[in-house]
């Protein structure tokens, strides 16, 4: 068995184990968002969270302020593209 096959087998074995643990935990607790899981795990009331509710569609959602997310993302993307163009010129 070469190293590549060995690597895939080790990764596949760990991944299957992790997936089984995750699915069992999900089946035991039912569907709930990450904040709800934290709230339950720590028995906090909903007032304990300062996180903003996001919006979403098709099950996907944005955490926090969507406008803030879009603005930040545009700034970060612009900075990355600027640096990329500058590095190509040099």
């Amino acid at each position: 068995m070469n190293d590549r096959t060995k690597g895939i087998l080790i990764f596949g074995g760990i991944a299957l184990l992790f997936l089984a643990i995750g699915i069992l935990a999900f089946l035991a607790t039912g569907p709930m968002g990450i904040e709800e899981r934290f709230t339950r795990a720590t028995s906090q009331g909903s007032d304990g969270s300062s996180e903003e509710e996001g919006v979403g569609m098709f099950g996907f959602g944005i955490e926090g302020s969507v406008i803030g997310y879009v603005i930040m993302l545009i700034i970060l993307a612009a900075a990355a593209i600027f640096l990329w163009r500058r590095s190509r010129k040099l």
């Binding site: 995750g22 935990a25 039912g30 968002g33 996001g54 098709f58 099950g59 996907f60 944005i62 926090g64």
Partner: peptide, 15 residues
């Protein structure tokens, strides 16, 4: 940053 804010509908909602 882009990925971290997105809640994915997996196991009830994760990041």
């Amino acid at each position: 940053f882009a990925v971290f804010q997105v809640e994915i509908p997996l196991f009830g909602g994760v990041h």
